[in-house]
Design a protein around this nucleic acid. Structure first.
Lengths: 159, 159
DNA sequence: GTATAGTTGACTAATATTGACCAATGGCGT
DNA sequence: ACGCCATTGGTCAATATTAGTCAACTATAC
C-alpha cells in the first residue's frame, strides 16, 4: 500500500515538470477528491513536503475563487543561495536536521552523492570528537556542526 | 555460532546484489521478524556496518509508511587500498602535507575539485577550532586532522 | 580477566491519516 | 452600502503506525 502523502507529493512534482514554471496552482477540494481523501490531507502534504527547507513557498486564499499556489524558490545570485542555506542551517543544527537537509540537497542535484558522503563523514567526526574525546556540551556541539556544515556548503556554492 | 549481526549484514548485501541499484529499502519490523530478533537489532547492524565511513548513507522515516533506505555510495573497499590510505596519511599530518596529498589526488583524477574543496574546508575548520576556540596542542591538532582526513578518504575508497 | 562487540526490551519520538470545528472571501439580495 | 450565506481553505487534536535511543546484560576476542 503506497503512502497517500507521497503519492500526492509526486503528483504535485509532476505538475511542476509539466508546466515548466516556478509555480503551480491548485484547488484543495479538487485535489482531495482526486485522491479520495479529506481536504486537510493536502495541508499536511504542503506542510511536510513543500517547505522553505525544501525550497518551496506556499500562498493561498480562502473563499470564492480560493486557491493554493506553490512556488519553487529560485536564486538569481550565488549569494542568495548561500543566505538561504545559512537561514536553514541556523546557529545550531541537530544531526537529524542536517541529514535531512543533505538528502534534500542531493535530491535537488545541488550535491553529488559522494559530496554528501564527505559532509556526513566530517559532521560525524566532529560529533565523535565533541562527545567522547573532549567533553563539549550538546548545544556547543550542534553549534560547531552548524558552522562546519555552513562552511562546507558555502564553499561548494562559490566553487 | 554465526553472529546475528553478520547474518543480517550479509542479507542486506545480498539485497544490493539482487536489485543492482544504489539503494535498498527495508521495513525494520519485517526484517526483525525474518531473523526473529528485536527491531533495535536492525539499528545496531546499520550503525556498525552501514556507516558513511564505509560508503553508505541511511535514510529513514518513522510513523505510518515508515521505512529504512540504505544508499551505497562507494563500495568494493579492498583492504589494501584502505591500509594504503593509512600509510600515506600516517598518525599525524601537517597542513602542508595534507594539501599536497589532496592536490596529487585531484591531479590523478581520483578526487573531483569540489570533493577536494570539501576536504580542505573540513580540515581547516578542525584546525581553526583546535587552535583558537579550544587550546589544543599542535601535535594533537595534526593528529585529529589526520584522523579526519583518513575518514574522509576512506569513505571514498581511494588508493 | 578485561575490553570490545552483540543482544534485548522498555521507553521515546516522529509521521500519516482523519474529522470536527474555525476563518476568510466574494457574490447576491435587499 | 450592508449583511447573509455559500464556498473555499486552515487548524488542531485524536489515533494508529512506524522507527530510534539507551542502558543493562551476555558473549566473544585478545
Amino acid at each position: 500500500m503506497a503512502s497517500l502523502t507521497r503519492t500526492i507529493e509526486r503528483y504535485i512534482n509532476d505538475l511542476f515538470d509539466e508546466v515548466e514554471e516556478h509555480s503551480v496552482s491548485l484547488r484543495r477540494k479538487e485535489l482531495a477528491e482526486i485522491f479520495g481523501c479529506v481536504p486537510s490531507q493536502i495541508n499536511y502534504v504542503l506542510r511536510s513536503r513543500f517547505t522553505p527547507e525544501r525550497g518551496y513557498l506556499v500562498e493561498s486564499q480562502r473563499g470564492g475563487h480560493g486557491y493554493i499556489k506553490i512556488l519553487r524558490i529560485t536564486y538569481n545570485l550565488p549569494e542568495e543561495k548561500i543566505s538561504h542555506i545559512e537561514d536553514i542551517v541556523g546557529e545550531t543544527i541537530s544531526e537529524q536536521e542536517a541529514r535531512r537537509l543533505l538528502a534534500t540537497l542531493q535530491e535537488r542535484g545541488i550535491l553529488e552523492p559522494r559530496e554528501r558522503l564527505l559532509i556526513e563523514v566530517a559532521l560525524r567526526h566532529a560529533e565523535d570528537l565533541g562527545s567522547s574525546e573532549f567533553d563539549i556540551s550538546p548545544y556547543k556541539r550542534s553549534f560547531i556542526q552548524a558552522e562546519l556544515l555552513k562552511r562546507m556548503l558555502r564553499s561548494l556554492v562559490l566553487s
